[in-house]
Design a protein around this nucleic acid. Structure first.
Lengths: 137, 137
DNA sequence: TTTACAAATCGTAATCATTACGATAATATA
DNA sequence: TATATTATCGTAATGATTACGATTTGTAAA
């Protein structure tokens, strides 16, 4: 999802467009991977001195609900990234830099059979490791 | 892994067998699913008044290292279950009762190709929902 | 453009899970 | 049974996340 698209999505649902929100979304738009609330704070601090965690978390969760961001949990910390809207897929996640790579394999089709009377509500398939860049470093 | 087996594993690596450890392992042996540290505390409290979180977490992590328990993170809380030793597989996890069901599908074989120069260190494939019992309740 | 109201933010404190520490107790083995 | 090692207790610290009243800001209608 692109920056402009997500701003419109916000507006269309009655949420206000503030400078902070634009910057938050621009940050994730340029990140191409998972980032934590702390990462975001460090990015915002210089521009907005004294910005509070409340503001960041409130917006992160709002964006998550609206579908602009998606989240996962790594090492006890929530991580956020721009939502992938085009088609269903999963991610390789670099544990050093948080960058992600799309994985188009999804095992859910094969699984349905073996879970006849179970109510499936969601699934998670993630691969962890080091991306080529971080292997060299 | 069965209770007896895990006790022997502990002993063989030089760790002591205490009454608390036996009870912790018996608890997970009978659970057949994921449980949190808090669940465990509630189970232990009546028998061992004043048992501390330090003791529980220390043991949980010890068991994890030794390979008696395996862990996953759900809703910001670590969850533990008896380790499955027979063969590689994944789990359906009931979000109400924590019970698990084995899923023998693993997508990693198909994935290797598309991640040529990525260093894969681990993966997670979990399915969430309600088990038949919890659907009725 | 101004007004008015809902939404957003600040500053800070509370909460929750988890980890850490010094002192004491329990276990296993020679 | 003695002794060294490991486990536990009681409690406090940490780190991520959430909550709250007061204040500010953005938006859409007048």
């Amino acid at each position: 999802m692109k920056l402009q698209e997500s701003l419109e999505k916000l507006k269309s649902q009655g949420y206000k467009t503030t400078a902070k929100r634009k910057d938050i979304l621009a940050y994730f738009d340029g990140a191409d991977g998972y980032r934590t609330a702390k990462d975001l704070l460090q990015h915002m601090e210089p521009t907005y001195k004294g910005i509070s965690f409340d503001t960041l978390y409130r917006n992160l969760h709002l964006f998550d609900e609206v579908g602009i961001l998606e989240t996962t949990e790594l090492n006890g910390e929530k991580h956020f990234r721009i939502s992938c809207t085009h088609h269903h897929h999963h991610h390789f996640i670099c544990k050093d830099c948080g960058k992600t790579k799309e994985i188009d394999v999804c095992p859910m089709n094969e699984v349905q059979n073996s879970l006849g009377n179970y109510a499936i509500e969601g699934h998670k398939f993630e691969i962890y490791g080091l991306c080529p860049v971080c292997q060299d470093a």
